[in-house]
Amino acid sequence: MMVKKKKLSKIFDYFRDEDPFAGGISICSGCPMELLLRFMSKVLGKDIIIVGTPSCSAIVLYGQNIGSWHKLSYYGCLMTGVASSATGITRYYRKIGKDVTVVCFTGDGCAADVGFQPLSGAAERNENFIYICYDNEGYMNTGVQRSSTTPFGAKTSTTPIGVARRGNETTGKNLPFIIAMHKVSYAATATLSHLEDLAKKLIKAKEKKNEGFAYIHVFSPCPTGWGFPMDLSIEVCRMAVRTNYFPLWEAERGKFRLTHKIKKSRPLKDLVRMIRKFSHLTDEEMGMLEKEVHERYRLIEGVTQMMPLKETP
């Protein structure tokens, strides 16, 4: 009897190795960062060295005492020393003539704030490693505080809503753009609703890291800290792309390309209404958030026209 095989999704073609993580690991249910960690490891392969920091991801990467939740080679360092530690590892392996894939895996709090100096330094020197920042728009591991990528108006535990103050007062850093402007070999944005786009970017980063610095900024919403049901994580990712809140692009040495152009963008309200950290926004505040999102999109659209990156076949 013929058994009709179910056709696997194309995404499986991108996997090099099996998932190196244990089944039950201590990350909140529905956290896209966990998915990213597993996905990244499968696409990049098991012969990588991960460099990470205290953060939500550390809980899993570090393990506990002598136990480990994964089979990867891991260098756990301080929030201040990720990109520099990765530099040390790659430089040593370069010295002895051995190809190695070093992957920094940190939150936005490390990348945009306390670990920014070494990140910028490594980007400027175009060091040969990959840096993946999962952006959950805040310090989640310490209990949802604001970071410098927290968007305007967002409620966090350090930007609470009261009579005197109403959420985050700044518009936040455009970190992936800042890194791309270091003219690194590769910089890209990605998220977990667009897995093929993410997989291609991971593979490209692995290639490009031979020429220099490769950076991927992954939008990684946090059900626990932002306030949305855990089964909506991927929907939030998708909506962030559709509203142009988080455009998907890539850049090589200062030349830019949108990798997933939105023909007709959805109104930002469709995203904002899914997330409790924005639930207090007045129309005026909403307008300010919209203005920032719009400006950022115009910026990236502008540079893709001014400094276009040709699509590689």
Binding site: S85, T87, G88, R91, Q117, P118
Partner: peptide, 24 residues
């Protein structure tokens, strides 16, 4: 040697520590 003209001392120490742990 691989010479790293770093952007600060904190990075200098992290770089050499990680390189030493890698075997250098």
């Amino acid at each position: 040697a691989e010479m790293v003209e770093v952007e600060g001392e904190n990075s200098a120490m992290n770089i050499v520590a990680a390189a030493a742990i890698s075997g250098g």
